[in-house]
């Protein structure tokens, strides 16, 4: 998806609406990152600057709304970037199988990250809830990605009618 990108203002508005919808999604289904599929779409578009901005802003949203000390969201998105880079060398970036494996990897990472933070920040985090959140992320990320990818493609087609 190496098309011409929309104007900066249009992009900002698009991602702002997406962030608002994502925050409402997260308030309805706790534990699931509805913002990550957007980052995945941005990585698939190959727009590094846009991806970096999204990661910074979405990390601030997660860190601000969460109760853990700063860090988990940064590691969460860092692993997403790493998985994307590794996966892209094997699969087509927009392949559904790739997205499924990517979300499964993130589901496992969610659990590992929780256990890591439990030791690093000396907190009690209940394992059953952590496992449920990991599984929910693994299931929900591809579903949300399908919707966001469709909307994003429509947006890019609108900018590149040819």
């Amino acid at each position: 998806m190496q098309n011409q990108q929309p104007s900066a203002l249009r992009s900002v508005l698009w991602w702002l609406v997406y962030a608002v919808c994502g925050v409402w999604g997260m308030s309805l289904l706790p534990g699931v990152d509805f913002l990550l599929p957007g980052v995945l779409c941005s990585m698939q578009e190959g727009n590094r600057q846009q991806t970096l901005w999204l990661v910074v802003l979405f990390s601030l949203v997660h860190e601000g709304a969460g109760l853990l000390a700063f860090g988990p969201a940064v590691l969460w998105y860092a692993m997403a970037a790493l998985l994307f880079q590794v996966g892209r060398s094997i699969f087509e970036a927009e392949n559904v199988v790739f997205v499924l494996l990517f979300s499964m990897g993130l589901g496992v990472w969610h659990v590992a990250l929780g256990i890591m933070m439990r030791h690093l920040q000396d907190l009690v985090i209940l394992l059953p809830r952590l496992l449920v959140s990991g599984a929910l992320n693994a299931v929900c990320i591809p579903v949300v990605w399908v919707v966001v990818h469709f909307l994003r493609q429509r947006e890019l087609r609108h900018v590149n009618p040819s």
Binding site: P30, G31, G66, A73, L126, R129, S133
Partner: peptide, 16 residues
């Protein structure tokens, strides 16, 4: 209360 356990770090019992 505007939200219960929001975000990917929702393992702790919290409200906003």
């Amino acid at each position: 209360v505007i939200a219960h356990r929001l975000g990917s770090q929702a393992e702790l019992e919290s409200v906003l």
